[in-house]
Nucleic acid binder design. Structure first.
Length: 236
DNA sequence: ACATTAAAGGGGT
DNA sequence: ACCCCTTTAATGT
């Protein structure tokens, strides 16, 4: 449907040949990172590029009042870092939402890699363009809509991005429209992604739950979204 | 802001 | 391993 959206999830290293891959592995740090760890903070000594091999990472900045504003949530295959990110000049923190494996390289390593592999540079531009488009689309929606609509928009995006793959039986089941998110998000985190407050999100979510658009078995349990209904409401 | 509830951690058995 | 208690995080109003 939306090609750009999927481009941004492309694994940068997929277009590397195995022999190149080995070289990259040699001068690249690949580290397992626990859930909740700070991966990157503003003003690093040297800028680095990060690549999420598995897990999920939340990027956020601080508002002047000290509130967190979530910029994006990245899963396996996504890139982030000072280098070339749409939010590069901003003060960005990165924290893992799940246990993750993060791959990182210096700007120097990255440049060397791009010089050696021009195809990679092209892919990198495509990925960044797609991210920029995504951010612009997000801004537009978040700036001009009601809380309800912003929440629906966010849920729709999350459903697209983080839909858990269906197990065999579930795929056959009679309700394929319920989508389970594979990231755990609190109301606070949702609020920080849509520029709202925790209380407002709680209320709005309860309303959506009453309408059968979302459901959850309990706190810190996965969120289920009736993606088709969300889209129907967004169309209005 | 305060109250409620669910989950996580810790100690003992 | 299991139960009970304390503490903390998330949610509800």
């Amino acid at each position: 449907m939306n090609k750009l959206k999927y481009l941004s999830r492309v694994n940068l290293f997929q277009i590397l040949e195995p022999q190149d891959y080995n070289q990259v592995e040699r001068d690249t740090r690949i580290e397992p990172v626990e859930k909740g760890s700070l991966v990157a903070a503003p003003n690093p000594e040297e800028p680095r590029l990060y690549f999420v091999k598995s897990g999920a990472v939340r990027l956020y900045s601080m508002t002047l009042e000290g509130k967190e504003l979530t910029l994006d949530v990245l899963t396996a295959g996504h890139l982030f870092g000072e280098i070339g990110a749409p939010v590069s000049s901003r003060q960005v923190y990165a924290v893992t939402l799940e246990d993750s494996v993060i791959c990182t390289m210096s700007y120097g390593q990255f440049k060397a890699l791009l010089r050696e592999k021009p195809d990679l540079a092209i892919k990198f531009i495509e990925i960044m363009s797609a991210r920029l488009a995504e951010v612009e689309e997000l801004l537009e929606h978040m700036a001009y809509s009601s809380v309800r609509k912003r929440l629906l928009f966010l849920l729709n995006k999350l459903a697209d991005k983080f839909a858990a793959p269906l197990a065999g039986e579930e795929a056959e089941a009679d309700r394929p429209e319920w989508v389970r998110l594979e990231v755990e998000l609190t109301h606070q985190e949702l609020a920080s992604m849509m520029g709202s407050t925790r209380e407002t999100v709680t209320e709005a979510m309860n309303r959506l739950a009453a309408e059968g658009i979302v459901k959850r078995a309990g706190q810190r349990k996965p969120l289920w979204i009736r993606a088709d209904r969300v889209r129907a409401f967004l169309a209005d």
